[in-house]
Simulated scan of single mutants.
Amino acid sequence: MTGHIKGTTTVGIVCKDGVVLAADKRGSYGNMIMTKNATKVFQVEDHLAVAGAGSVGDILGLVRVLRAEVSLYRARVGKPMSVKAFATLTANILQGSKYYPYFAWFLIGGYDERPGLYSVDPIGGITEDRYVSAGSGMEFAYAILEENYRSNMTVKTGVKLAVRAINAALKRDVYTGDGITLVVVDKNGYREMSKEDIAAILKAL
């Protein structure tokens, strides 16, 4: 599928023991639902992940570039790229492409010596955050995040909060829908939560 994803709600949360990234699965073009199983959260390396809100073609294109650059860095330097360096790399690529921009907003999450989370706008503006949301349902997600985020929360609690935030957008934003993708990046690496685990959290809300 190509074109622009008008909708999307993405969420990132820093916990004391890891980072949580989440997104809905609906891909829309104008008022038409193009897919109900869009992938918006991607593994870049064992300890690095990115979530994108915007044009699916631009998101996939940048993810391919980032994966190649991270692999080259490891080969040249002999160690993995830090989360901060990865966010800076993403920002530099977007800044260098601003005359032909990537139409997407990216959340960068990962774990090296500690968990890290960055928000990178389409022309390379970069902000380090403790929690963040992007996309058409972000106002609904932020309402949940701002009221419930705690800096000392565990990943287990952060996962539940991310599901609550995306679920708020699912209920209120017409361009957000069709399920939730949720990943955790911690000292053990990248892992995606199962549909059954997410369903259990939703049932308990």
Rank of each mutant, 00 (worst) to 15 (best):
A169I: 04
L145D: 07
R67W: 11
T157R: 08
E192K: 15
T39R: 02
G125F: 13
H47L: 06
P80G: 11
V159H: 10
K171D: 07
E196P: 09
S97I: 05
A104W: 01
A162P: 08
I166L: 02
V83F: 11
S136P: 12
I5T: 15
A87F: 00
V70P: 00
G78K: 07
E113F: 12
V132I: 13
V19M: 12
T35W: 11
R172S: 10
R26D: 00
D58E: 08
V63M: 11
G116I: 02
L107Y: 05
W105R: 11
V20T: 09
T8A: 03
G110T: 12
T9K: 01
M1N: 08
V70H: 01
M34C: 12
H4V: 09
Y29W: 13
S119D: 13
K6M: 10
A199G: 11
T39A: 02
N152Q: 14
G109A: 06
I33T: 15
G12Q: 04
T88V: 09
E128S: 14
S194A: 03
A134Q: 07
I180L: 05
N31M: 05
G7I: 00
G125D: 12
G110F: 06
A38T: 14
I93A: 01
R150H: 14
G3W: 08
G78M: 05
L60D: 09
I13C: 07
L161V: 07
R164A: 15
E45V: 08
A200E: 10
A51D: 02
V70T: 09
E45R: 08
K25A: 13
A38W: 03
K156Y: 10
L21V: 01
H47R: 10
E147I: 08
I5C: 15
D17V: 03
Y111I: 06
L94V: 10
V159I: 13
Y73R: 03
T39F: 00
F140N: 05
D178E: 08
G12P: 06
A143M: 09
L161T: 07
Y118D: 02
